[in-house]
Design a protein around this nucleic acid. Structure first.
Lengths: 179, 179
DNA sequence: TATTGTTATACTCTATAACTATA
DNA sequence: TATAGTTATAGAGTATAACAATA
């Protein structure tokens, strides 16, 4: 049974409200030297899932031209390196330089300390709840947004389809208890 | 005592992740006829806090020129009306037209049904947790972002300052129990 | 023929600066 | 002098289309 329409409406409004607040923060204090917020996100994604550019674009949820432009900028600043993939000479392998890792670290530390000051009245449990709830919401929207390939018409269902992403099937209590 | 740096980092990453997911949804399915997402937000804010344009801009967190442009667009589409404020002839009072209310309703209903389908596996408690956590986070960031006027140096503190926004001082349990 | 990446172009949303009108 | 609103301009971030090189 779906969630109540009133709850859905409320959740939508809260999410848009959060986005507005974050946008205000972005313009006021999320810059880092030459780097815009988007490039900072690319930097972090490289650190986490670095590798082929095309995969990075998918993980960032942006088109190839957008990533290309950001990588060119980051390379120009000496923060990332691009090398042709020896196994597929069309592709690139992307990695942070020493300077890139340093810059990312500064960005992260700065954000963390700012957030810590904003959450001065919070306790660990509250933070854990927020992390969990937002993660679950992102997962739900991601699987919803994912354009499921058009339902196979008149074809017997494949025996083994895409791995049944175990993602977020925990209840909140289980997930919290597992910390 | 502030939240753990690890929790803060995790929360930051989850929030950016949510923003990415929502951006993907925005480009794929949040349009409504001529209206972009920003104009839809203006429409809703008018419905909730309609009144003086300058106050709307503040609540939306955008600059006056941005709101002016959106209002011009919405007025051109026949969705909002602007009248000079009789009490202050510099200002405008903004309100939805009949068509504007109808359009907003369609937008809301559409979003709600989409979100309900995305949250197919959720229960009411989970939704309530997400609403609460996201609202608390927005509040915390908003008060942090609010440029507190520079601490009065060498001046005796005002007897009555800005009302001590009671905002979110409930614990999660209290807030949930109050539903 | 499909995929990786780049360049060119355009769109959305935003801000700052300069202006008019009113207070 | 300060505030409400508009217009002009610029910037960040994104997408689509057309292209080159490789598979």
């Amino acid at each position: 049974m779906p969630v109540d329409p009133g709850s859905a409406r409320e959740l939508i409004h809260r999410v848009f409200d959060l986005q507005r607040v974050i946008r205000c923060l972005s313009t006021s204090e999320l810059k880092h030297g030459e780097l815009g917020v988007a490039s900072q996100g690319v930097l972090r994604m490289i650190a986490e899932h670095g590798g082929r550019a095309v995969d990075l674009a998918g993980q960032l949820g942006v088109s190839a031209p957008v990533l290309s432009r950001h990588l060119a900028e980051l390379e120009g600043l000496g923060l990332v390196e691009r090398h042709r993939d020896p196994e597929d000479r069309r592709a690139q392998r992307v990695a942070l330089t020493e300077a890139g890792a340093t810059a990312l670290n500064e960005i992260e530390e700065h954000r963390i300390s700012r957030l810590q000051s904003y959450l001065a009245g919070w306790d660990e449990e509250q933070a854990a709840h927020a992390i969990l709830a937002i993660g679950q919401l992102s997962d739900a929207l991601r699987t919803g947004a994912r354009p499921m390939r058009p339902a196979p018409i008149q074809s017997s269902p494949p025996v083994l389809q895409t791995p049944p992403t175990p993602q977020t099937t925990q209840t909140q209590e289980e997930a919290l208890a597992a910390r």
